[in-house]
Simulated scan of single mutants.
Amino acid sequence: MTIRTTQTVARFSSPFLLPSFDAPQPAGDYRVDQDEELIEVFSRLAWRRVSAFIHLPAIGMNPQTYQMVPIDPAELEAALEKDHQQS
């Protein structure tokens, strides 16, 4: 089975909270990794997302520890949409 990881950046202009977080996170740019596995569908290739992680803290912050927290991509999209509507 072939797996690939794609990285994107999620930009929040306001503090935000996802259900998997213990506390709200400050505004900023956050690295997001999505792992996908290769599947064959009717002789075509396709990718199916199998997991997603957000890196804490935001890019450019200088903490003593870093975390990769598993997230639900739909919850991330909803938080980004809410943030966009508030700005």
Rank of each mutant, 00 (worst) to 15 (best):
W47V: 07
M61T: 10
D83F: 07
K82D: 12
P57H: 09
T5H: 08
A27G: 14
I3W: 02
I54P: 03
F42C: 00
I71G: 01
P15N: 10
A74D: 13
D35N: 09
T5W: 09
I39Y: 07
A10K: 12
R4S: 05
D35H: 10
M61S: 12
E36Y: 03
I59P: 07
I39L: 09
Q85P: 07
M68Y: 06
M68I: 05
I71R: 00
R4H: 02
W47G: 02
F16G: 09
V32N: 01
R11C: 13
H84V: 00
K82H: 12
D29A: 12
S14L: 15
A27M: 15
L38D: 12
I59T: 13
Q25Y: 11
N62T: 05
A10V: 03
S43D: 15
M68R: 13
F12M: 12
Q7K: 11
H55P: 01
T2F: 15
R44C: 10
V41R: 10
A27N: 14
V9M: 06
T65N: 10
Y30V: 04
D35G: 02
R49Q: 14
P24V: 04
V9F: 03
R49P: 05
M61Q: 11
R44P: 02
L17V: 06
F42P: 01
R49A: 13
